[in-house]
Structure formats: structure tokens, C-alpha cells
């Protein structure tokens, strides 16, 4: 029946809300739902054709009702589509704020696209990432927007941790090579598997990005 696919999308969205990571974009279902809307619209045009624009609902209650059902189905599908995308967009925005490796993920899939060549690559590349191409674009632009917003206050890190630190200095272990960073006490070179005693404020970003691990 009409509207069943939309429901499937919403059930996906419901599951998405309780998952820590964003599941793959359901491009097949989204496409089917939009096709359903287009079919319904064509049916409505067909039904209205014999009336030449002079349709009186009072004279033809049965036809009017059929039109109403078609219209309601379209509206329902629209609501399902919008709600599904909104849940995903909210998750993406949250990822941008928490500074997780969303952009890295996007980068990785882009590289795959570049390797796979122009034509087929774009389709396969987006399959590897859990975001649709539009969502990747959204994430990138939202990230830019967030960076511009944060740039207004150089002395506050808006995306920093809200938990007050217990110690000024912490032990960290390097999980991935991160190159050289500048601190108040000079430069440190972060090579994999090495361990440092550094000021927490200097490395907070790197911990969030997963380069360093905090040791107790």
C-alpha cells in the first residue's frame, strides 16, 4: 500500500536515533518513495483530466474522496522523507560539534571516488561512506560554518570538553603519528606509541580526534 515505504524509512530513523553511529543512507528506499509520490501525482492529473479544470467536489463526492486519499498519501510520504533526513542531519551536526572523525570519513570516501575514476566511482564511493553525497556536502559546509563561528572567540574553545579538568597536566599515549605540535614549553614531536606528560589544554583537540589517548 502507499505509504508503507515511507514508514520503513521512519523505522530506520527510529533505529538511527539510538545508534552511536550513522547507518548507511537508504538511497534505494528514498528513491522508491519519491517515485511513489510522482506516480500519485500522475494519477491525480489523470483523474482530473476529464473535468477540464471545472471540478466540483460536491457533485462527485466519490472522486473527491479518491483525490483526497491520493493527496494524503503524498503528504504522508513527504513527512516521512523530511523526518528521515532531519534525524540524519541532526546526527551530522552533532558529529561536527563533537569533532568526531566525520570529516575524515568523508575524506576517505572521496579518495576512493578519486581512485575509482569519474563515472562509476561516484556511485561506489558513496556506498562506502554512510553519508549520501548531499549529506557529505552538508557536513563539510556545516563544519566550515562552525569553524567561522568559533573563530570569533579565539580564547574560548566552543567545542571543548565541558568537564572541568582535575589536573592541569595529564599523561597521554600517541595512537597515530600526528607530527610536531607547539606548546608553551616548546615543540613536541608526536610519534606513534610514545608517551608524554603534557598540559591538557594543549592536546584536548588531538584526544577528541583520536590521535592521543588519555592515561590515568
Amino acid at each position: 500500500m502507499y505509504g508503507d515505504l515511507g514508514l520503513k524509512l521512519v523505522q530506520h530513523a527510529k533505529r538511527t536515533q539510538s545508534l552511536p553511529q550513522l547507518p548507511p543512507y537508504q538511497s534505494d528506499i528514498v528513491r522508491s518513495v519519491t517515485r511513489e509520490v510522482r506516480d500519485l501525482d500522475r494519477d491525480v492529473t489523470e483523474i482530473l483530466e476529464p473535468f477540464n479544470g471545472h471540478f466540483d467536489p460536491a457533485e462527485e463526492p466519490a472522486t473527491a474522496c479518491s483525490l483526497l486519499v491520493h493527496h494524503l498519501c503524498m503528504r504522508r510520504n513527504k513527512r516521512c522523507l523530511l523526518a528521515y533526513h532531519r534525524v540524519r542531519v541532526e546526527a551530522i551536526e552533532e558529529m561536527c560539534w563533537s569533532g568526531s572523525d566525520l570529516l575524515e570519513q568523508v575524506q576517505a570516501s572521496q579518495n576512493k571516488v578519486a581512485e575509482g575514476g569519474a563515472g562509476i566511482g561516484s556511485a561506489e564511493g558513496s556506498g562506502a561512506s554512510s553519508l549520501s553525497p548531499e549529506e557529505e556536502e552538508y557536513a563539510r559546509q556545516y563544519g566550515d560554518l562552525l569553524a567561522a563561528y568559533k573563530g570569533q572567540w579565539t580564547d574560548i574553545d566552543l567545542t571543548g570538553s565541558l568537564e572541568p579538568p582535575r589536573d592541569l597536566f595529564i599523561d597521554v599515549r600517541v595512537l597515530k603519528d600526528a607530527g610536531e605540535i607547539q606548546t608553551e614549553y616548546g615543540a613536541i614531536t608526536l610519534t606513534k606509541n610514545s608517551q608524554f606528560f603534557v598540559r591538557q589544554g594543549d592536546v584536548e583537540r588531538l584526544i577528541a580526534q583520536g590521535f592521543l589517548q588519555k592515561l590515568n
Binding site: 505509504g3 514508514l7 523505522q11 536515533q17 513527512r79 532531519r86
Partner: peptide, 11 residues
């Protein structure tokens, strides 16, 4: 309008 639970209620 965007509430997932409201949509599921409607279904």
C-alpha cells in the same frame, strides 16, 4: 511535524 514517534503513532 518531524517527531519520529508521532509519525509511528500515525502509522
Amino acid at each position: 511535524y518531524y517527531d519520529i514517534d508521532a509519525i509511528l503513532t500515525d502509522a
